[in-house]
Design a binder for these strands. Structure first.
Lengths: 197, 197
DNA sequence: TGTACATCAGTGAACGCGCGTTCACTGATGTAC
DNA sequence: TGTACATCAGTGAACGCGCGTTCACTGATGTAC
């Protein structure tokens, strides 16, 4: 006996499908290159219906970025929490700087995928983005060494921004073994610098 | 007695003016947002003449990126070489992660300004970009500690990519004191991690 | 040295294209009586 | 329970706009005789 879903519930599901499609598209192709038509097509719809669900493209980005950072954080922290005590930070670093992460930007970190574009954007966009990123920083800070919470958060910020740069650079390099070596070197470096001995 | 310059010399000067305008525009506004009209206007010309000097927009980017990386490297290494012996790397790091660099992307590092966009680009673009960046790596490596040249180059890669990420992130943050603190924390961290004691 | 012509360096209008957004429309579902 | 109407969720054509690129043109400079 399949429960017939209400109209609004179906609409809500459609909206989520659009947001999910957008979250991947933005990270794979960039904010500017991702058009309303692209996203709707990915979601199996046509462009006209977009404005039934969203005011404009900005609203879509706000929602998509929220979803993107949430799922990425979930993925990274699940890996960290699965590690044995004392090795969580190492697991976080290894997951972030993994070849899988490099090769699937569509489901990965937004800073490394869109940071440059956002840095040039309007203040409002940057504020949204900063806020989203703080979510990850707050969760990451406890894993870092440091006397005070402020110190740990500071270190978490440097680590996350640095790793975003490394991941971004690893996606630029055309020589794949060179790219692998950059990731490997960075994993070792950050683990040695931040992980408690 | 002012020497009258030949036609081709004048043309060459105009071309350089276009390239210089483009190098700044690309880093300030991004590759996609920078149009031929914008660049020509910055150079004091109209869009039609562009195709007298360049085959297409790709050729312009190739030239502009060469110029950009050259002038940025010159700026950074001048600062390094002006420092007293043993403090050159520290000077390089402090200059790269300075507020001045953060606040003038148009004359700064290309990786931090355009890395994300390039990472999504075609292989050819990425190859050009990788090549340009290697210029900086080769010059930076000797300042880093390490037993072999390969090790020093590896470390230089991690450092440069990391700093690019930090600079990029510092340009995203809307709270300027938070941005300042990220830069300051990163300067200390990288100096402590890489600079020889 | 003067003149006729060729080339250079650039102008500005026009092109086709893809974008974000609007809008008249439609068929399916929900509601009132 | 059946019927009439309202709303929902989406379609697809059309809009104005800015883009990269093309092209006919023009006035200044260089060259041949």
């Amino acid at each position: 006996m399949t429960q017939r879903q209400s109209t609004s519930a179906k609409s809500e599901r459609t909206r989520r499908r659009i947001v999910t499609a957008a979250a991947a598209a933005y990270r794979e192709r960039g904010i500017e290159r991702t058009g309303v038509r692209d996203v709707m097509k990915r979601a199996g719809l046509t462009q006209g219906g977009f404005y039934f669900h969203f005011r404009d493209k900005d609203e879509l980005f706000a929602e998509a970025s929220r979803q993107a950072v949430t799922t990425t954080a979930e993925w990274l922290f699940r890996a960290a929490e699965a590690a044995s005590p004392g090795k969580q930070l190492r697991a976080f670093i290894d997951t972030y700087l993994s070849r899988e992460h490099r090769d699937s930007p569509g489901s990965g970190c937004m800073i490394s995928a869109l940071g440059c574009e956002v840095a040039r954007g309007e203040r409002r966009l940057r504020a949204v983005f900063s806020g989203r990123t703080l979510i990850m920083l707050e969760r990451l800070a406890p894993y870092l060494p440091g006397a005070t919470a402020a110190e740990r958060r500071q270190k978490a910020g440097v680590l996350l921004a640095s790793m975003a740069g490394v991941l971004m650079a690893s996606r630029v390099l055309t020589d794949s073994s060179q790219s692998d070596r950059l990731l490997e070197g960075a994993r070792q470096f950050f683990a040695a610098s931040f992980a408690e001995v």
